[in-house]
């Protein structure tokens, strides 16, 4: 059952990914990306990461993709659908590069072996619930990176404001 679900999610994610990078209409790309994010959340659920699945849907599907859609509406798209979505003479270079990179990765995956196991076993996480386990890790061991992430978001807000301001 788990294997079946994994293959469903994996096939949909890969198929949608291929469709997204080749589709002509950018609005279709963004909407397909929405479906892809939901299937990605399904993969996280298979990995017992409920909190990450929720964050994936809330942040990626709820915030980032809406931002992409808004920007697409601000930009002129009428001529986009008539033209090729790829740069000139770049398509085959891209295909060869991506396949070469994938073969390199595959070699790494084949020779991969796991390191020593940590203390958070599946039973322990299920017993204390995933959100609580994540919260404990983030607010104790990783409190400094958490603060830095807050500063990064502040920088993004200020940067966005500074760029949106029209110069006189």
């Amino acid at each position: 059952m788990v294997q079946l679900l994994f293959f469903y999610f994996a096939l949909v994610v890969i198929g949608l990914g291929l469709r997204i990078v080749t589709a002509k209409n950018p609005v279709h790309c963004v909407l397909l990306m929405l479906v892809l994010f939901f299937h990605m959340a399904g993969l996280y659920l298979l990995l017992n990461a409920e909190f990450l699945a929720a964050v994936q849907i809330i942040v990626y599907a709820g915030a980032i993709l809406v931002l992409y859609l808004f920007v697409l509406f601000l930009v002129d798209l009428r001529e986009e659908v008539k033209m090729s979505p790829f740069i000139k003479k770049g398509k085959w270079l891209g295909i060869v590069g991506a396949i070469a990179l994938f073969l390199t990765f595959l070699r790494g995956v084949m020779n991969f072996s796991l390191g020593p196991h940590g203390q958070y076993t599946i039973e322990k996480i299920q017993q204390m619930t995933h959100t609580k386990a994540m919260g404990e890790a983030i607010y104790t061991t990783y409190i400094l990176p958490f603060e830095v992430a807050g500063i990064i978001l502040l920088v993004a807000v200020i940067g966005g404001l500074a760029m949106a301001k029209r110069e006189k």
Binding site: L52, V59, V71, L74, H117, Q119, I152, L153, M163
Partner: peptide, 29 residues
Amino acid sequence: MEDLRGQVLVFFIIAVAAAEAAIGLGIVV
């Protein structure tokens, strides 16, 4: 690996991705 470090890193990557999307799309506009 039965360790939470990777998932914490995913959490931070999502935060950085949100910031990156905001800045990148601001540049595009």
